Amino acid sequence: MDPLYRVSWQFCRLVFRLCFRWQVEHVGRVPAEGGVILAPNHASFLDPPLVGAAVTRPVSYLARKSLFSFPLLGWLLRRYRCIPVDRNATAPAGLRTLLERLQAGEAVLLFPEGTRSPDGSLRPAQVGLGLLVVRSQAPVVPVRLFGTYEAWSRHRRLPRPRPVRVVFGHPLDFAPQRREAASADRARLKAIYQEIAQIWEEAVRELS
């Protein structure tokens, strides 16, 4: 790990233990090396650092492109392995960089729902997950986050101490979907993306 990343990683782990009584389950299911997509549900500001602090390897994150325009913040985001996201772009933001990092054997964090849930419930995955799965060879590790909506939802300005839990699922391979997508027409490709989203959603719901 980058020294700054490691210090922040250790600090987050301490804060989560003391303030949120966090529990991490089955982190050993995350491959220790090679490209991997970490795919959690998304209900809170806490979600990215919670997942990143739970695993023992560096993780690449997505962050709004506008945040990189602030000199100090932009420098920090780059040190924290963040990838700029242009939410107004027509193509899935950051997809090329995500693919490059997966091909380089890195772990990337992707929220398939795209944005924080307004009520804490699991929402359907967007097209980005299917695109990333089809164009990469990386497995997808479903992750279920519990308690983060209660701790710091999008409706609260500040967090409050509530127990949180991070549960990792078994890696999903998606090899059949990748093989079929190689020769599928546009309509079938769209259906494959939806199938991948459904498999991810069911895997997350099964985690408890």
Rank of each mutant, 00 (worst) to 15 (best):
P112S: 03
A93L: 12
E100R: 08
V140H: 04
Y193E: 10
R156P: 12
L132A: 00
L102N: 10
P139E: 05
E150Q: 15
R116K: 05
Q194I: 06
N88F: 12
D119W: 04
L98T: 06
H170Q: 10
E180T: 11
V166P: 01
P112N: 05
R154L: 14
L102M: 07
H155Y: 10
D185K: 00
A175Y: 05
T148C: 15
R160I: 05
L131W: 05
H170G: 10
L122S: 02
F146E: 05
E202T: 10
R188V: 07
I192H: 11
D173F: 08
P171L: 04
F168V: 04
R144H: 14
L109Y: 00
E202N: 15
R157G: 15
S136V: 04
R116I: 03
R186K: 14
Y193M: 12
I192D: 12
P139T: 03
P159D: 07
E206W: 06
I192Y: 13
A184C: 04
V204H: 06
Q177R: 01
V134T: 13
D185L: 00
E201P: 04
P118D: 06
P124E: 08
A175K: 12
I192Q: 10
V167F: 05
V143C: 06
A107G: 09
R123M: 15
A151P: 11
I199P: 12
Q198C: 10
E206A: 15
V134C: 11
Y149N: 05
E195G: 11
R157V: 14
S153N: 05
A187Q: 13
G169R: 00
T115R: 10
A197L: 07
R179L: 09
L158D: 13
L122Y: 03
P118H: 05
Q137C: 11
T115K: 07
K190Q: 14
R144C: 14
P159T: 04
F111W: 02
A107N: 09
E202L: 11
A175G: 11
E113H: 03
A151S: 12
P171C: 07
V166H: 00
G130R: 02
V133C: 01
I196H: 02
E206K: 13
A104N: 07
V140A: 08
E201D: 07
E100N: 10
Q103C: 09
R123I: 10
A175P: 09
A197I: 08
V141P: 15
Q194V: 09
P124S: 05
Q177S: 00
E106H: 13
R188E: 13
E100Y: 02
A89C: 11
R135L: 13
A93F: 12
S117H: 00
Q194S: 11
V140K: 02
P112E: 04
E150V: 08
A138M: 06
P139L: 01
A125K: 04
L129T: 01
V166N: 00
A125Q: 09
Q194F: 04
E201I: 02
P124H: 05
V166R: 00
G128M: 03
Q198W: 09
A125C: 11
E180L: 13
R154H: 14
Q198D: 15
E202K: 14
V166A: 02
L102T: 08
